[in-house]
Amino acid sequence: MENRTDKNSYTIIFAIVMVLIVGSLLAFAASSLKPNIDENKRLEKQQNILYAMGVNENDESSANFVSTDKAPELFKKYIKKQLVIQDGKVTEDNQAYLIDIKKEQTNAKAGIARRLPLFEGEKDGKTFYIAPIRGKGLWDAIWAYVAMDKNMVIQGAYFDHKGETPGLGANIKQRFFMDDFIGEHLLDNSNTFKGIDVSKSNADPKNDDKTDNEVDAIAGATITGNGVSAMIKSDLKLYEPFFKNLKK
């Protein structure tokens, strides 16, 4: 006799019921957890920006953010201005850190002028300009917050990624890679924007030369490294006019 579970009608009903149950379960989980997840993401952005300007709890070798409960308070304390640059016009907006860079990049392709957030921070009498950038790694998105001084010399950087290979591309968020950027000049000797190359043929592995526009690449992570170079070149270049104006 044919088994009950082999019937076509049973199979179809089972499939429908299963999809309904699993679907509503996932929808329920996603919508009930969304406020928490959004809050976590918001705090993470504040932590990232603070990290780039040197407000962090780093120990000797690992990268540590300030704790989430302290982040909003410290963010208020250290970030003096949140700016949005659009079409060369600079406006203040204290929600600028929530601007979705991915959306802005898509808008830019469609011809809508991109909104560029820039955060002005102050710590120990020094002024930092922190810009968020975003690009592509090997598997998925990579992004960074780069803190610069008014001469576009990097003062700190925080890199992160969505799905780079652990031990290889994922190492861009390790201290040894991020710290290499500190002190590097984004401009070349004639003061035009050149960016920073993550270079495999770098003859300067200890990174003593800060004006060569190069940092040492990670072995086995060529494409992630190229992605880092590319996003620095394309996204930070957009801020060049702002810094030119600053000097006038």
Binding site: T5, D6, T11, F14, A15, M18, V19, V22
Partner: peptide, 14 residues
């Protein structure tokens, strides 16, 4: 005991 054998792989995946 209730999974239809014809679509069992899909059920497992889900």
């Amino acid at each position: 005991n209730i999974i239809p054998s014809k679509i069992r792989i899909i059920v497992q995946l889900v």
